[in-house]
Design a protein around this nucleic acid. Sequence first.
DNA 1: GTTACGACCTGTGGGC
DNA 2: TGCCCACAGGTCGTAA
Length: 287
Amino acid sequence: MPELPEVEVVRAGLQAHVAGRTIARADVLHPRAVRRHVLGAEDFTGRLAGLRIAAARRRGKYLWLELSDGEALLAHLGMSGQMLVQPGDAADEKHLRVRLVFEDDGPELRFVDQRTFGGLALADLVEADGTSLPGPIAHIARDPMDPAFDPAVAVRALRSRRTEVKRALLDQTLISGVGNIYADEALWRSRLHWARPSDRLTPAQARTLVDAATEVMAEALAQGGTSFDALYVNVNGQSGYFDRSLDAYGQEGRACRRCGSVIRRDPFMNRSSFSCPRCQPRPRRSN
DNA sequence: GTTACGACCTGTGGGC
DNA sequence: TGCCCACAGGTCGTAA
Ligand SMILES: [Zn+2]
């Protein structure tokens, strides 16, 4: 699903609805949802009972709940994960994977995930570059909404890679939070073709791209994120509206808003890249 | 260490 | 109706 703006919408919902509450019980309904918790589902549920949720945090597309014992409940939504705040008497969702029940009388927190690429795990917090992070994601780069994000660092990282610029932009260890939608939008705004060699971008081009990614994700967050269907929703099951503002992603056959050319689709990493043939010409060889 | 690819899942929509 | 294929907001393990 969910790229940075959509995950941030979920984080804010968790902060509002579960921070400060104490977990009474956790149920794992599908073992694959906790496959990253190496000690297994029993250990996972056993250790959560009785812990209080202090805060909901995020880096890139990863979320975590800071717990009262100093651990973190780390979550990734994968392609189809949802965090839903639901009354306990609401019927189980078809793809309900994990349920958290609280000691108060308030609603449950449900992790629902059709494709099961997402998951939850308990992890220790570690110190990385002056920031407390769950150990398993200590290698993930800062995202553009991080107050300590340094665009110059991201520019250097992108230009150090011998690969296509879109591959670099999607590499979460260089800059985090960008996925297929916002990569295509940032490239369109920067007038760069996705196959341009990342290490041959000028510093100014790379900076334009980083700034475009930052801006498009901020605009998307203001619209509640991007959603084409009921798979991508906030904790109350509602979709965002940024799909109306997309200029490239999913726009094959439509006119480019800038030049009127017909937006094309190319196969890319078993998915798609959308771009404008005139604004984003294919690289010849060396640029 | 870097890079590229298929695997991991479930579901939907289109063509025949 | 049904079958088969293409495709979907992501990462991860493996191999070169
Ligand atoms: Zn154009």
